[in-house]
């Protein structure tokens, strides 16, 4: 029962949870974790399709790049969070509303 559908479902659930976190969480770190969930979901998708379609490893390479980008993203995002925290004395993203119309 190593069904494709199961993996895709798991991936979709992770993706939706990540989205939910991005939309609802006030803490910037939590939002970042939501993003990590989304990235993991997509990477899982890549690997899934790689496995279920003739075993070619392009999907795995893509997943590898996803991991690399996630690392870079996390590093930059945390640096930004530090700065926001210093300016606004908070890590809450809904307070970072300088662009409000």
């Amino acid at each position: 029962m190593y069904n494709l559908t199961i993996y895709l479902m798991v991936s979709a659930v992770l993706f939706l949870l990540g989205l939910f976190a991005v939309m609802t969480r006030k803490n910037a770190i939590s939002v970042l974790m939501g993003i990590e969930l989304i990235l993991n979901a997509s990477a899982l998708n890549f690997v899934t399709f790689s496995h279920f379609s003739s075993g070619n490893l392009n999907g795995q390479v893509a997943a590898l790049f996803v991991i690399i980008i996630a690392a870079a993203e996390a590093a930059v995002a945390l640096a930004i969070f530090l700065n926001i925290f210093r300016i606004k004395a908070t890590s809450q993203v809904d307070k970072a509303d300088l662009l409000q119309g």
């Binding site: 989205l19 939309m23 939002v31 993203v93 509303d97 300088l98 409000q100 119309g101």
Partner: peptide, 15 residues
């Protein structure tokens, strides 16, 4: 109202 300046609001619209 839509131009909340909040990233999450924008994400919401997009989604």
């Amino acid at each position: 109202l839509f131009q909340a300046g909040q990233l999450q609001r924008y994400v919401w619209y997009t989604l």
